[in-house]
Write a protein that binds this DNA or RNA. Structure first.
Lengths: 328, 328
DNA sequence: TCGTATCAGTGAACCGTTTAACTTCAGGGT
DNA sequence: ACCCTGAAGTTAAACGGTTCACTGATACGA
């Protein structure tokens, strides 16, 4: 590679007859006179100088990069989340380093621990109960989305009121006359049940629902596999409640393949409400993606700047009633 | 923030009674004896030492980061591409810095130029004809996906045979009896027509098709708007050919809203073949996402290592025949 | 007139690695 | 006994900024 050499701060200093320090200050609008600032800026522009972010990071201890560790990017909703966070961070002069745990707690642990050179971390945890979070949290400001981490002093939390989301879903299914419902929840190998999963069981009991909980990888193809087994068996449930829209899409695929009509033969309920769900008529629980993105980014930057201590924001869901759930 | 201090290489050196340089070499398995390597590794593990990537980057000139500049992440297919590239890079010990031009050539230019501190760039260009690419290409190895850049000495190109893709789509529509077809192509403000767009016009002429080309933003909501106008007007075309599946989804939305049945009332053809298209029965042109991801990653790393000079890989499409296109 | 605060800018240390060039020493060939 | 070689480490200079502590000069009030 030819690798054209870029101008350094020293060359700008030479060109203006100033010291490198003065140039550094001038370009960031500190300490030096307006007049000199202009001179420096002009010289920098002429030389095509732009500060090397690496060197700057080493010296200043800040990189302008925020880690974004996603539970599983196979999930379209999380993809949207990541994209939104990336865009919003960029608007505030930061970069997103997007990482994918792929639903695997080990991978998550590895990624989180290897992570260095970022000013903060936004994470949607696979295993919020893992021990390493606490350790990580006091070397790095963390903003967590979804489930709060176990005894980690995170900088901020944007938690979902899954309790409420689960209750409204199950009550709705019950109201539509369903009694036997399958629950598809994302696989998290080696992770203890999430509070949300436990809550499903509790609520089902309260409502007199007969449920069968099955774990299922995110992603269309694998979810279709799993759903096929459930819908294809004898004694098929009248409804399937999926803990992500992506999984629900898999269920719709399987229903298609088995020539089952939704919602006549089987009802399907999603969770997250991805834009595509509108097109597919999937009834789902909406989590206000945009609000979450804005909040998470605002909080992580504030935390990196040290302008907040702790903060907790709770998201309330609402049920988006479409056509994939019918009365039995 | 408490910001627990991390061990430096000097401390490891002190602990082992070696020089920092020896430690550096040892941890990378160079120059020093097996015996010493073991000692160093053990000490490092005990102290919880792990090299600071920033300092390493400054000294070595390599960051292990690859920029991934996407044309528009509103497009689900490009989202999948970005996610795939991110995952694959991570497997090869690199990080992806994902950037979104959002279909805007200015934004693309800004992002590309500001980009520093990466070892290479994978780009799916909005405006392949822009002048700055050439300049960028000789300060950074670039792998381009989609359309080749204009006179830039890119390290590698994974180009799509759009010529072929367009021809097979149009011929298929023609064979199904369509004559009046609307073409929806992503907006690229201020950009001259892509070769692919021109080819559409040429082929339409050759096939005796009466086409209307309309630009349209990526993303479900805006595409639906545009499609609504087209499908809602009098003299509605019998088929719509979309230059991305995401746009096609918008068309399906609009058809739904207008109570038009697909394909009875209107046929819809996509481009890219996103996994969701299977579920939606969208007939589309498949581009082998996975192969592209693998190729791009392999090439960009090779280019960053300086082990390739130039390379061009051409992707051939095939038509995935589903149910959204019918005979008139 | 003197002391002192303020402003504009300087010099040098520092951030934590890598790497080129050099030293030291043991072993081998002649 | 001598030179050469290679292995195992060491030294010190980068890498390209930021920032702390300081200097001179100018203005200011008493």
């Amino acid at each position: 590679m030819p690798q054209r050499k870029r101008a350094t701060i020293r060359e700008v200093a030479k060109a203006t007859g100033l010291s490198p320090a003065a140039v550094s200050y001038a370009l960031r609008g500190m300490q030096v006179s307006e007049e000199t600032q202009r001179r420096v800026r002009r010289a920098a522009a002429e030389l095509g100088y732009e500060a090397d972010p690496i060197a700057r990071a080493l010296a200043s201890g800040r990189t302008g990069m925020i880690g974004v560790l996603c539970g599983s990017l196979e999930d379209l909703w999380q993809q949207s989340l990541a994209v939104g966070i990336g865009r919003t961070l960029r608007e505030k002069d930061h970069y997103a380093l997007i990482l994918d745990a792929a639903g695997d707690p080990d991978r998550e642990s590895t990624l989180a621990r290897q992570l260095r050179g970022v000013d903060g971390l936004i994470v949607q945890p696979v295993d919020p109960a893992a021990a390493f979070w606490a350790q990580l949290a006091d070397s790095l400001p963390i903003v967590v989305i979804g489930d709060a981490l176990k005894d980690a002093r995170t900088a901020a939390e944007v938690v979902f009121d899954n309790h409420s989301g689960v209750t409204m879903s199950l009550e709705y299914l019950r109201a539509m006359g369903h009694r036997r419902v399958a629950v598809l929840t994302p696989t998290r190998a080696g992770t203890p049940d999430r509070p949300a999963d436990r809550h499903v069981t509790d609520e089902a009991q309260r409502l007199g629902l007969e449920i069968e909980v099955v774990t299922c990888p995110q992603g269309l193809a694998p979810a279709t596999e799993v759903a096929r087994a459930i819908l294809g068996g004898q004694d098929r449930p009248t409804a399937v409640f999926c803990f992500s829209d992506s999984i629900a899409y898999g269920v719709l695929m399987a229903a298609n393949a088995l020539d089952l009509h939704v919602p006549r033969d089987v009802s399907v309920m999603g969770y997250d409400d991805h834009p595509m769900s509108e097109l597919l008529g999937l009834t789902s629980v909406n989590w206000n993606l945009d609000g979450i993105v804005q909040a998470a980014v605002r909080l992580v930057i504030a935390a990196a700047d040290g302008t907040i201590r702790r903060r907790r924001i709770t998201q309330e869901p609402f049920l988006r009633d479409r056509t994939s759930v019918g009365a039995v």
